[in-house]
Design a protein around this nucleic acid. Structure first.
Lengths: 151, 151
DNA sequence: CGTATATCAGTCAGACTGAAATAG
DNA sequence: CCTATTTCAGTCGGACTGATATAC
């Protein structure tokens, strides 16, 4: 773990939005990843548990759609969660190509813990910004995303 | 190239600043990388040429400091730029452990082209935002970075 | 001597591709 | 026969580590 603040970047790079975005995301990703790793979890775990909690049991391809995790990578994520007893993987009786993933009681408890941890981490991330500024930032980012994701 | 907009993420994830930041950065990085790749360049090329142009000839470790490129990865970047005749690598007479990297005339010309291309790409990135909003965004990102990089 | 520089080899996590096996 | 789902194997670029040769 080093990743040190460059010792004074070229002027051309200093204010570049794409660069600021990239650097901020690296910091942010690391903060969250490490914060969750300290509890033995990964960001994808949170995403999957949240999706299951909110929309109920789902196939892996359904989870892939809702979380953004690649179908192929989801296999390992579900394996990890299942190994911890947080979800269960059962063949779907109605369509035997599918697995139905369900969250367990332990998974729901875990999700609540992760909720709390995430809240703390997000607060730490946004620490230097006042509440209205935080809303501004997320609003602006959301608009960027909407623009670059839409049709 | 696929990376598709998730089809409705869980509510818990939807507004998460860390997630918005991460997703926006992915879009942004891709936009810039692909925009430069279309000219046969990579983001690191721009960073190195800019550093050389603005601060003059430098050792590789100096460049590493100013650009944030790892010492070990910089070797390949310089190789690429040298192969294109954009920079020259010469042993430093004063300290023979060092290489002095200098930008060539072609390198300066290339930098100007990249400057223009970058400007277009940044504009494309920020397209949905009005000028004052763009300033707001970069200001907020800068403050996040300052907070998480500083002491 | 200890330290800095450039280079190389290699790890590691993440995004992504392609092809299989199975089943609709 | 064509398509969808899961899984596996593997690629690819980026960040990062560790060791080495060389020179201060």
């Amino acid at each position: 773990m080093s990743t040190g603040s460059e010792g004074s970047a070229p002027a051309r790079l200093r204010g570049l939005p794409s660069r600021l975005l990239s650097l901020a995301a690296v910091r942010s990703d690391r903060l969250v990843s490490e914060g969750l790793a300290a509890m033995g979890a990964r960001p994808w775990h949170y995403a999957v548990l949240a999706a299951l909690q909110e929309s109920g049991p789902a196939s892996q391809s359904g989870l892939s759609d809702r979380t953004g995790i690649y179908r192929s990578d989801l296999v390992a994520v579900i394996n990890e969660l299942a190994a911890g007893g947080l979800v269960e993987r059962q063949p779907d009786a109605a369509d035997r190509r599918r697995n139905v993933i369900t969250v367990t009681g332990a998974g729901r408890r875990r999700l609540r813990e992760l909720d709390e941890r995430i809240a703390v981490l997000e607060d730490e991330l946004l620490a230097p910004l006042a509440p209205p500024e935080r809303a501004q930032l997320t609003g602006l980012l959301q608009r960027l995303l909407d623009h670059h994701s839409g049709a």
